[in-house]
Design a protein around this nucleic acid. Structure first.
Lengths: 143, 143
DNA sequence: ATGTTCATATTCACCGATAAGCACTTTATT
DNA sequence: AATAAAGTGCTTATCGGTGAATATGAACAT
């Protein structure tokens, strides 16, 4: 189960440290894709396989399905954690998520998310996310 | 599994670099044909057989199906990757996909797609691809 | 407080992938 | 046969990815 929030910085070549506490769970090789709200998603090999299987079932003839599959697969890259615990974020993904220097990695159960630090702060502080609202939604979900 | 997005440029003769990460998967010889949404499709020999098999199952009595089959088969050409990792895109296919200089190759699971860079950017613009729709699809797939 | 260890940050050097230019070969056209 | 156009192959330069070395800083033990 991936949890926690970790702040780190990209080096000049666009590499990022994978926090030790996550490294074990996500594995040495993992998949990074474009995510929602301007972040990147990171999946362990296992989680990614599940996801892929589901994508395979979608029909080529349906435009909506093509869009969906293109979004995730074209945006996906396999990353490998090097001896020093870093991984390279491909330049198109860096661009998509507007990553420059300061980054935040958060654990979200089945995946991690990689954010531009400022965007993450904004996303949280913004009345975007209020604890009350979250609690309300939880009730709706029967938690 | 073919994934990722790679930006490269055609040389004066219409040749394109095949990204290293794709080269292995797609094989030295592969099939390029007209694709949907204005791009070109590229299949490994194996995936091309699968694809052909699927086309065969379509009912020839249906005009729509006949058109569909003709579209893919008539445009198909076998390409070979040269020692320097490039392949030539036949001129009729180049014309079809409006390839001039800047190209994008994306991996989409069982095939690659080759796009005119600008068309790909336009396709990915906000007006075309909405995060809400993607999120909705994710929910439907239980991701 | 001091020293030790481990995680993260930063810098540098090297190598391979790609871009670009050019020359040669083959095919088509006149 | 001469010329043009398209296709193929080689060479060089540049840039990004990769690995190594070192520095910084936090956590922990003595």
């Amino acid at each position: 189960m991936l949890i926690g929030e970790y702040e780190h910085s990209l080096d000049a070549k666009g590499r990022l440290i994978m926090p030790v506490k996550i490294r074990e769970d996500i594995g040495e090789k993992f998949i990074v894709t474009k995510g929602l709200d301007g972040c990147l998603f990171g999946f362990s090999q296992n989680e990614w396989s599940n996801f892929q299987e589901k994508l395979k079932t979608l029909p080529l003839t349906n435009k909506n399905a093509r869009d969906f599959v293109r979004f995730f697969l074209s945006g996906a890259i396999e990353c490998e954690i090097d001896k020093q615990g870093r991984f390279l974020i491909a330049s198109n993904l860096r661009e998509y998520a507007q990553m420059e220097k300061e980054a935040v990695i958060i654990g979200v159960g089945t995946r991690i998310e990689i954010w531009n630090r400022d965007k993450w702060k904004a996303y949280n502080s913004d009345e975007n996310i209020s604890a009350d609202e979250i609690a309300e939604n939880m009730t709706m979900l029967g938690i």
